[in-house]
């Protein structure tokens, strides 16, 4: 019985700590002010005409994130003109993953000509506030009566490996719902991703 109890303690210690924080659907989101690859600071407040935002925690090094680069570019080109710009945020500590340093972000942004801001979460406070756990991890924010409301959390679509095999485009469907004044369904999905690198 004692050892069983210790196992429960273990599961509490390790299992729930990561999931106990961060935004849930319907929560008010915090704006941020983060350094972009062009050297300027970017906030959601810089987009007074936006109807909402597709905030994507992503990075350079993670193959799941890289596999989605072209799809993120396509989302940006499709939805920024409709009022839902993509904002990419790299949450990783570059001392733990050198490929995710600010200078490497600039290199990758230039190589791929990212049409969206690619921001560095330098003090790693934004991903913790949002509750991102992996890259890529999407949070769709909708502006509602001046507030920034979290309306979708999860994956971009249902195939991380092959864009041609996708059968459900979660982010596209979520934006379509928001444009109709409805809440997305599904509003929460999961995906395999790389752990966000931070010093505990």
């Amino acid at each position: 019985m004692k050892r069983f109890f210790s196992l429960i303690i273990y599961s509490l210690l390790f299992g729930f700590t990561l999931l106990a924080q961060g935004y849930k659907l319907g929560d008010k989101a915090m704006d941020f002010r983060l350094l972009n690859v062009d050297g300027k600071m970017v906030s959601m407040a810089d987009y007074p005409d936006a109807k909402g935002f597709i905030v994507i925690f992503t990075c350079n090094h993670c193959p799941y994130s890289v596999a989605y680069e072209d799809r993120k570019i396509a989302l940006s080109k499709q939805f920024e003109p409709l009022g839902y710009p993509v904002i990419a945020i790299n949450p990783n500590d570059s001392t733990l993953q050198p490929k995710d340093s600010y200078s490497q972000m600039i290199v990758r942004a230039n190589e791929k000509q990212f049409p969206y801001p690619y921001l560095l979460d330098a003090d790693q406070s934004v991903f913790k506030t949002y509750g991102a756990t992996r890259t890529p991890h999407v949070f769709i924010i909708n502006k509602e009566e001046g507030e920034l409301i979290v309306r979708y959390i999860g994956a971009i679509d249902n195939n991380y490996e092959d864009a041609d095999e996708v059968t459900e485009k979660y982010v596209e469907a979520a934006i379509a719902s928001l444009q109709k004044g409805e809440n997305p369904d599904p509003a929460f999905t999961k995906a395999v991703g790389c752990t966000i690198k931070f010093k505990k």
């Binding site: 729930f16 990561l18 249902n158 395999v192 991703g193 966000i196």
Partner: peptide, 29 residues
């Protein structure tokens, strides 16, 4: 099986999908 949303919860509802992740079990424990 790249449609991970369909199966991550079946491994554990506690799993966000980030790796590494580990399940240890014996019978129902």
């Amino acid at each position: 099986d790249p449609d991970a949303n369909a199966w991550i919860d079946k491994v554990s509802p506690e799993w966000s999908g980030a790796i590494p992740a580990t399940l240890i079990y014996k019978n129902n424990f």
